[in-house]
């Protein structure tokens, strides 16, 4: 059981959680993720670690409510617990002195890119962050990003914050000016694909963090396989970051749509009676807490 010790909304439909998980907090590095399961009927979903405090034994995740599990998770508050949290999984981001590193992120992806941007800065890079969102009310962690970046550009589709336009438009300006040695892109697949298309012909080293569907997260099932340089790689153990110029984004998008119907059905079930689902989850957690207590007493 992993208690939630802090919870606050960051933007519309996006919420930050600090969760007590001392083992993970101690080991995690930027770019790694956890797998979360909320209750006994729950699915396992990967979420990138946004931050951690090894002293306090907490990890931070930022969740956008887009599927059933993320919606239910977003209803949780301080005092609730996460039933299962496992990690840190995947390989950490590559941190080196590249020169000028551009960190491109879309919406909730900013939370995932933030710790890597911070480490890139620490490693002596000039860090330029390009933070994108559809609209102002979907921007997250802009201030945190500014703090660890030498330059920060905000791009919104509707111009409600920063400049109106796509993150790739700003990136193109920087690339054209010959200023870029390294790019990390984290966000929706079409955005990452557009970044790859822009930087690959220029031979600028570019990494993307892939969000494929996972089950165990330890390499056992192969469900997260992606085509990289025409060979099968597992996002959970070989990634999640891959060389953007090698990634087949079409296959990634196709596979991410594999359960679209089922996802819709689950969301409808939740939305039909969200409070009942929340109560069920809390009952379930309580049962587990009682069982754990009983086991502890039996042991003594």
């Amino acid at each position: 059981m992993f208690p939630i010790v802090a919870a606050r909304p960051l933007a519309r439909g996006i919420k930050l959680f600090e969760i007590k998980a001392p083992r993970i907090a101690k080991k995690q590095k930027p770019g790694q993720f956890v797998i979360v399961r909320l209750d006994d009927a729950g699915e396992r979903i990967p979420l990138t670690i946004a931050d951690a405090d090894p002293e306090a034994g907490t990890v931070t995740i930022v969740v956008q409510a887009i599927g059933k599990t993320t919606m239910l998770l977003s209803m949780l508050e301080v005092g609730d617990s996460i039933l299962d949290l496992v990690g840190p999984l995947g390989k950490p981001s590559e941190i080196e002195k590249f020169g000028t590193a551009v960190v491109v992120s879309g919406s909730v992806g900013t939370a995932m890119a933030y710790p890597t941007a911070r480490e890139l800065k620490r490693a002596g890079n000039k860090v330029i962050s390009i933070v994108g969102a559809r609209s102002k009310d979907l921007l997250v962690l802009e201030d945190a990003v500014r703090e660890v970046s030498d330059e920060t550009y905000v791009m919104t589709d509707d111009g409600t914050a920063g400049q109106k336009g796509l993150v790739t438009e700003k990136l193109k300006e920087l690339v054209d000016a010959g200023l870029v040695d390294y790019v990390l892109a984290v966000g929706p697949v079409p955005m990452m694909r557009a970044v790859a298309k822009l930087t690959s012909p220029q031979h600028i080293k570019t990494m993307v963090s892939l969000n494929s569907i996972m089950v165990d997260g330890t390499g056992m099932c192969g469900g997260c396989r992606v085509l990289v340089n025409n060979s099968s790689q597992f996002a959970c153990v070989d990634g999640p970051e891959f060389d953007a110029s090698q990634v087949n984004f079409e296959v990634l998008m196709q596979r991410n749509n594999m359960y679209r119907e089922e996802e819709k059905q689950s969301i409808e079930r939740l939305q039909a009676n969200p409070l009942e689902q929340l109560m069920k989850l809390r009952d379930n957690i309580l049962q587990h807490e009682c069982a754990a207590l009983a086991a502890e007493m039996a042991h003594e």
Partner: peptide, 26 residues
């Protein structure tokens, strides 16, 4: 699917009882 994934979804995650259990199965 790999047999590992198919069986993990069905057995560990009880996907044969979807939507009562969340994990989907093709």
């Amino acid at each position: 699917y790999s047999a590992n994934e198919f069986l993990t979804r069905v057995n560990l995650m009880r996907a044969y009882r979807f939507p009562e259990f969340d994990e989907p199965l093709y």
